[in-house]
Design a protein around this nucleic acid. Structure first.
Lengths: 202, 202, 202, 202
DNA sequence: TATGAATGAGCTTTCATTCAT
DNA sequence: AATGAATGAAAGCTCATTCAT
């Protein structure tokens, strides 16, 4: 019978393509209609599958699919951000790069970011692979490094990291309310905000 | 039968009590299990009602119930915040009071705040009475006043207001990740953050 | 407790008025939305009652209410038709009067007629007091009398009566498809139709 | 899951059989209990399905099922009538054939006809594919042709067509009141009726 | 690798009616 | 004469998932 694909064998080309197609459809559906409305039926419809059975076949269950969505978007985001923060030499520079990269990503990859936020804010859905702190930790590291290097003033790195993350997430939300909002302006405002907020007080 | 109550008649004592009981149960259910899982069945179970029919009896439909949830929590929040910001004389003071009041409220009324965020982040649910900008506007006003009075530096009031709002909402989220988090410390950090971020540069 | 009014006592003025108000609302609701949609809730809403309880109070059950609707409209129709057929001396004249009276009534009392047809065609609803044949019998009598008097040709009076009744009912239906349809023209066409169809063949 | 089947793919043999089985059960249920009582539950029970879910699986929604019922019965009727009117050379002959065919069909396929009338008289249910005038038009065409050919007298073809249709529909109704009613006798009476009613007056 | 078929549980909402003053 | 409160049953529909090829 074999309800699902065998999990120990590596994925074939066809299977990978199908999975990608389904994940793509899931991302678009979540971004467009919200997480709650992203049923297998709607995802299958968007992916133009004849039946939702194909989703159940390629993914263990819904959680498996959503996890894949999150992993995919998150790794793209991390790569995008990583590339742009890597060359920085100061914590201040790293923070600015981190902020600008995140906002740029959210601006150019709106669908992916919409899906990601859709999943995260939905609640009641716990992705085993991803912990809340795991997202914060890269920022926290930048902040701690900056404090250790004497670039930043004393503050609770965890709270500051949370604030940074919230403001980054704030861009897509602000976009919904103000569709014409410019990513660059938003980024500059936020960069300045945290520059002043973290600067050593003289 | 009275499919649902007439809306022009004032609510009787009993009806008010029942509605309150149901709204309370809805708040707790949303806060605990998330918006998506807050079905009539679960709400009725928590309120120890004989059937979900009693909910349909007292509320026009689910939207009506959820709206009541939001209105109730939001007005409590507004009153709490309003009382604490009213006596302030400076924009700086108002901003601090606003931040502390919001965080305190989120700390002491965690269930209510959890429900509120649960509804807002669920998406696809539009409360007619509440607009996105309506939540931001009180903060924006404080910020604009502070700029006009020369207390604050030049910045985009809308973006700064969004940042404030995101950081305020960030407290319940941070709580989930760090249950022992102290509201006072969080508030002080955030107050300092925005104090520095809005201060006129010398 | 007394769930319903006592049934052995004669109706008071107030009670009669209330019943009339409810029956009126039921008629309008059925005519406008159809029999299937004429729930107690909708009827109560149209009658501007605070609760459907008032309907249950004044009528034993739904069947009781609908029976009252039918009886009321039917007796008005019978009176209208009776008055106009009474003075006739020939069967031919009686038939024409019957046809014109019915169509006129359907034209001027569209709401009542709509409700009546709504109930009759709904099916599954048997009014004890009214039998199918009871409606046909006055026409059948006219037809039989005409045959006995030698005015009409030989035909099955029951089938002809059914045809007459169907054509009379056809006017409201035709009205729905052609709102501008003139009652007089329709009546004249139908009168001619049955005049020719019943006339003795030479 | 396949919430409901894709519509572009042709139906498989099994699916066609299931759909047919369900439509058949729906027809019988409507004919027996009336349209209002034809719930998914009752239809599933009659079709001996494990649950109503199977109906939702094979039909988009209730409207889809009912439409299929109507289309199926109506096309059978049309074919039956079409075959019998096709060979006629005169309008008079066509009218007689039309009348006899309809009444015969209603007599031999009582269940189907009962379902059809059940749906049409239920009201509030609009089958997109079928318009009121669409049913009348074939009769109207016969009548107009007969007038053009000088076979029929002058009359309003629309009203006469409506009368024909009402009398045709009248047979099943008459059957309910007089179960022993003979279709042939009824047909002959109606044929004579309209023969006389449409004949040129000398 | 894919798919058609089927399923049980759950959802919100509406129904006419009854309980208790 | 009226009413507020409550109720069980049933409705149509959608959910993710499993069965069987």
């Amino acid at each position: 019978m074999e309800v699902n694909r065998a999990c120990d064998t590596p994925l074939s080309f066809t299977a990978t393509a199908r999975r990608g197609q389904i994940v793509r459809a899931a991302i678009e559906t979540i971004a467009e209609h919200g997480f709650a409305a992203a049923s297998f039926a709607r995802i299958a419809e968007r992916a133009e599958l004849s039946s939702t059975r194909l989703i159940s076949y390629h993914f263990k269950d819904k959680k498996d699919l959503i996890t894949e969505v999150v992993v995919q978007v998150l790794s793209a985001l991390e790569e995008y951000v990583g590339t742009r923060t890597h060359g920085t030499t100061t914590a201040r520079g790293a923070l600015e790069a981190y902020l600008r990269a995140n906002i740029e990503f959210a601006d150019t990859r709106r669908t992916e970011m919409g899906a990601l936020l859709g999943v995260f804010t939905a609640g009641g859905f716990h992705i085993d692979a991803i912990e809340h702190d795991q997202v914060l930790s890269p920022i926290e590291r930048i902040l701690r490094d900056g404090q250790a290097a004497g670039e930043f003033r004393a503050f609770d790195p965890y709270v500051m990291a949370a604030a940074v993350q919230r403001c980054v997430e704030g861009f897509p939300m602000a976009l919904e309310a103000r569709p014409g909002l410019d990513a660059d302006s938003y980024a500059t405002e936020i960069v300045t905000l945290f520059d002043l907020a973290t600067r050593r007080t003289s």
